[in-house]
């Protein structure tokens, strides 16, 4: 018996990335532009989605809701007529390629349009796994504090667009928007930052125009 040292150099995310690439090809062939929606629990991901989808009435939107448990968000979206499919991960902290691949079989894409995939509320793991999206949209709320880009750099680094939500609460919280923006800009110099309030609807017409230009 001989001890042999074998070079491998294989990235552990390779298999997931391969599946994500296939998803991306399949979706583009159907004319679907996919958005991976990330944010902490309670950042207002579903409420922001509702504002965006209502602001784009001429575009068909589809939603995949990822949650550890419950279908609360799916019920909310279906009630206002948005086509939504629920994924429950029962403990897993993020969505990954194979989970999305099997879920997409349940979505009936009869028209081209936008697919929003609302990831598990978490600023850590979702940033690591591609799920076949065209872009990552990150929602951060002023109630979470202005230090989030410094504490969760990867999520802010990988986002193609950032929504700073709950800005109607700015007078009530100690949120230094310059400190937030400075950290974000160091990680991600070019991604647009939209200040919004899902409660009042403020700022969403700009988000919708930006998204429309992407299609």
């Amino acid at each position: 018996m001989a001890n042999e040292d074998i070079k491998v150099m294989e990235n552990i995310y390779n298999e997931n990335d391969r599946i994500a690439d296939e998803i991306q090809k399949g979706l583009s062939s159907k004319g679907i532009y996919a958005i991976n929606v990330m944010g902490a629990p309670g950042a207002g991901k579903t409420s922001c989605l509702i504002n965006i989808i209502k602001g784009l009435p001429e575009i068909q939107s589809y939603v995949i809701e990822g949650d550890i448990e419950s279908d609360i968000d799916t019920v909310k979206l279906k009630e206002i007529g948005i086509e939504t499919v629920q994924i429950n991960t029962y403990g897993e902290c993020h969505l990954d390629g194979s989970l999305i691949a099997s879920t997409l079989e349940k979505v009936n894409f009869d028209k081209q349009g936008l697919l929003f995939i609302e990831n598990i509320g978490n600023l850590v793991c979702p940033a690591e796994f591609s799920i076949g999206e065209n872009i990552k949209l990150l929602i951060s709320a002023v109630t979470e504090g202005d230090d989030k880009p410094y504490k969760y750099p990867l999520a802010f680094q990988k986002a193609a667009v950032i929504l700073l939500n709950k800005t109607d609460l700015l007078p009530l919280v100690d949120f230094d928007i310059d400190y937030f923006s400075e950290g974000l800009r160091a990680l991600n110099p070019y991604a647009p930052i939209f200040t919004v309030s899902a409660k009042t609807g403020e700022g969403f017409s700009e988000v919708c125009s930006w998204l429309k230009a992407k299609l």
Partner: peptide, 13 residues
């Protein structure tokens, strides 16, 4: 700082 890969393995052959 974001690496995560299998560099090499040692085998009994």
């Amino acid at each position: 700082g974001s690496e995560f890969y299998v560099e090499s393995i040692e085998l009994d052959t």
